[in-house]
Nucleic acid binder design. Structure first.
Lengths: 332, 332
DNA sequence: GGCTATCATGTTGACGATAACATCGGGTGC
DNA sequence: GCACCCGATGTTATCGTCAACATGATAGCC
């Protein structure tokens, strides 16, 4: 009870090994020019004492923390979460860890998150920016390398994204080729970049093909919202494009409750290709987004910046279409 | 280009406000006994300089970091992820943030994760321990308050968990009451505590009711695994209990491919109540686990420990049964 | 008017690491 | 044999903050 006090420091290790604390530091940091037996003794002392480097002190002295700050949306959706895990893995391999905080899109919330992370001297910043406004809030930061993820299509060389427009066109073309001419769309959460891009692309698509504009149904990414939207799908619609998979699942459920067959009467397509999409009934036609690849690229890019390597232009990640049973030929 | 160098420190702020750095510190930490006009001047200087507290230095001086370390499983499943978000929210409200790292269950991986987090002087530790072995690896830690989450049923006053046994019995009782007598089970990933508890409870249940033991189907939580298991469901089985919802979805898909009707021929139940479970076809009977509540309790418990408040015994979180259309009366 | 209590603030020394510079004891070159 | 260099290690200053103690005014009290 008396001595539980302090964790051992470099000085303690040094004393035990009969060297100076600086030698301990050198061993820890793999400096060359240490006699093997000295190193041996230090390592042994470290083990004996259960010594563990104090990163706060190290960060203070070096100005680096080996931590990457990540700002996430407040709601745990599939995409950002998958990307987060990929970031974690890739960063870990490079000796970094994510420090995560959530923020909504208002400037206050974003500012708070930034203060928090920068105050911890993170070495880099990943912002999962789902709303265009955050770009402005964050653009001013120059202290550390910073990267936007999932912002939609692109934001110069500071972002990694899946090509939303291309993904959307893939589904819509697919449906058009099946003969569908009456489309409706269930949007993602209003205001978010991805939701906006999918919606805008949908609208342009209708215009390009001279198709009717039926009311656009507002969703929020949730299966519940998809279900509600499904109840409101207009008569005569044969193709329903939902901005993500859970909403598509909800919508299909609603359509079937209304006595409509999918895809016999209405073809339904989603977006994201969640792992369950292959096993819904009917199997969901959707667009596969490689969220893992997004995370990997983000980390690679940040590491390059941290090491002051040149960074080329960033290609958007290509999505691809996955056709399953929820879409079929337009009814006659 | 010349002066982008260093972030402003307390000294810079102090100089600009014409006070000592300690006064700045006092303002920042809301100490009483500061003349309002002095405080005013300091705050102004802070704003002008865009000063931000250096938490590394603060952590070094105080030994506290206002960070909670979280060790997560390496795979992004619904449960742990939901809990993580809940932890983030609850911690944030108390001025803490999670520092996240992943680890598999082997001692090395876990040890590395612990070193990393403890080296950063986290104020508390949450371990999402899905494997019994990690308990030993981590039990020795006494530096900081530590809490296990999702370990299955309980591990003294150091864990928060959903009552797995109870949840499992809820589904099985439900199926039994519907007249089912031939059961099969698709397990979660072998080795994980939750998977084991559900499986063990299933086996005990069969014994208690004197029911036949058909082969147990090994899964890994994924919808894919559920699908493969579904292809192997034995003839004559009328009730299939899957250890989570995605596997149940996969299994249903497989059963239908085999020409079996759900729930006409086989009733299928899952576990977790993922948001999409209500909208599968047929709607999935499952056990709702309140992962958010788990996260909230975990944080509340840790905060109490950090503040040295007494901690009572921890009740397991109660799951509840959600009956939908994937289960029905046993066929005659 | 001198003594003490109190308030507001300043000064100094940790905290535990790294970085820059200093030392010391051989070998080498000539 | 002397100057020099180099490899291995030690010494000291520094990072930005908080904690503990020191100071210097002001005010109240007898």
């Amino acid at each position: 009870m008396s001595k539980a006090a302090r964790n051992p420091s470099m000085h303690d290790v040094a004393a035990r090994a009969g060297v100076s604390h600086q030698t301990v530091s050198r061993v820890l940091n793999d400096f060359p020019g240490i006699r093997p037996e000295t190193r041996e003794r230090v390592i042994e002392a470290i083990r004996d004492l259960g010594y563990r480097r104090n990163m706060a002190a190290r960060a203070l002295a070096t100005g680096r923390s080996e931590v990457i700050g990540v700002i996430m949306p407040e709601v745990p959706h599939f995409g950002p979460t998958s990307t987060l895990y990929a970031i974690e893995h890739a960063a870990k391999r490079a000796g970094f860890k994510p420090l995560i905080t959530t923020a909504s899109w208002d400037a206050d919330s974003m500012g708070e998150a930034l203060d928090f992370l920068l105050g911890r001297s993170v070495d880099a910043l990943v912002v999962m920016a789902q709303h265009p406004d955050v770009l402005d809030a964050v653009d001013a930061i120059t202290d550390v390398p910073i990267l936007f993820v999932l912002t939609g299509n692109s934001h110069g060389d500071r972002s990694v994204a899946v090509d939303q427009v291309r993904g959307t066109r893939l589904v819509l073309d697919h449906l058009y080729e099946l003969g569908h001419r009456r489309f409706q769309h269930v949007t993602g959460l209003t205001g978010l970049t991805e939701a906006g891009l999918r919606r805008d692309t949908f609208v342009s698509f209708l215009d390009e093909h001279g198709l009717d504009h039926l009311p656009i149904l507002e969703g929020d990414w949730s299966a519940d919202a998809g279900y509600r939207a499904g109840l409101q799908v207009a008569d005569g619609v044969t193709a329903l494009f939902c901005a993500n998979d859970p909403m598509a699942m909800g919508a299909i459920h609603a359509l079937e409750e209304r006595g409509l067959d999918v895809p016999g009467d209405v073809s339904v397509a989603g977006f994201d290709d969640v792992p369950e999409a292959a096993y819904t009934h009917p199997g969901l036609t959707t667009v596969h987004q490689d969220f893992t690849e997004v995370g990997l690229r983000a980390v690679a890019l940040l590491l390059a910046q941290i090491n002051h390597e040149p960074v080329g232009p960033v290609e958007p990640v290509e999505p691809w279409l996955i056709v399953r049973d929820s879409t079929g030929p337009a009814p006659a």
